[in-house]
């Protein structure tokens, strides 16, 4: 197909900015949207959200990568969930931008690797705006600044429709990361505030990141009120 035709095929994609929301509710919302997308009842949809503190353990994960006793997690108000995405353990919490694309990869070349690379590339392009060089480490998906990780990926694909996605540390409590071996590895994490010396509002970073993702995924994002989408999610 001629390359000039592609621009006419830019897909309109729904963006649902959830603000701050707890992990379990958003998980249920993701599942509901995933079912609707797989049934062709909604178009591709991208959730952005900031979670209350939580640890999630993926399919390749183990509670052995939690380095503190359950009492400490309880004191800090951190819940632990087992989830079906790929990967090991990760932390979500205030100051972290989480992006959950619920999209049909049959429109993205049916390529799991390309999908992960596009998620990573959005963050790499955004970091470049701040003069920060983000990169990849072979065999360790995510976005790294030097040897420190600034964004994690973890995805679940069924009927070629995605859920879960990307977590980008904007201004996180890094002490919370000290409670785990992120991704099952003894690695250090970093955060945009640490690298720039400034705390940016998550909504602003979300807008910038999504703007970076649009050309990579050939999307045009249209923001919608999440209210109606929460219906039926209890």
């Amino acid at each position: 197909m001629s390359s000039w035709l592609r621009s006419t095929e830019t897909r309109i994609v729904t963006h649902l900015p959830l603000g701050r929301a707890d992990y379990a509710s958003v998980y249920l919302l993701q599942r509901q949207l995933h079912d609707l997308r797989a049934a062709g009842k909604i178009r591709d949809t991208v959730i952005t959200v900031e979670h209350d503190p939580v640890l999630t353990i993926g399919r390749a994960g183990s509670v052995a990568n939690i380095l503190v006793p359950p009492e400490v997690l309880e004191q800090e108000g951190i819940t632990v969930y087992e989830v079906e995405r790929g990967g090991d353990i990760t932390y979500h919490g205030p100051g972290q931008l989480v992006v959950y694309p619920i999209i049909d990869l049959r429109d993205q070349g049916r390529d799991l690797r390309r999908y992960i690379r596009n998620l990573e590339q959005g963050v790499i392009d955004l970091l470049a705006e701040f003069g920060i060089k983000g990169g990849r480490r072979p065999g360790f998906p995510g976005v790294w600044v030097g040897v420190r990780k600034i964004a994690s990926v973890g995805v679940y694909v069924k009927h070629w429709v995605t859920r879960h996605g990307l977590a980008f540390n904007v201004a996180v409590n890094r002490a919370h990361f000290g409670m785990i071996n992120p991704c099952g590895l003894p690695i250090e994490v970093t955060s945009l505030d640490e690298l720039t010396g400034e705390v940016y509002p998550l909504e602003e970073i979300a807008r910038s990141l999504l703007a970076r993702m649009e050309p990579l995924f050939e999307w045009r994002l249209v923001e919608e009120d999440p209210g109606p989408y929460w219906k039926g999610v209890e």
Partner: peptide, 14 residues
């Protein structure tokens, strides 16, 4: 029906 899950690069595929 969902038969099995496979994983590659932090992605679970059914």
């Amino acid at each position: 029906d969902d038969l099995l899950e496979v994983e590659t690069e932090k992605t679970t595929f059914v």
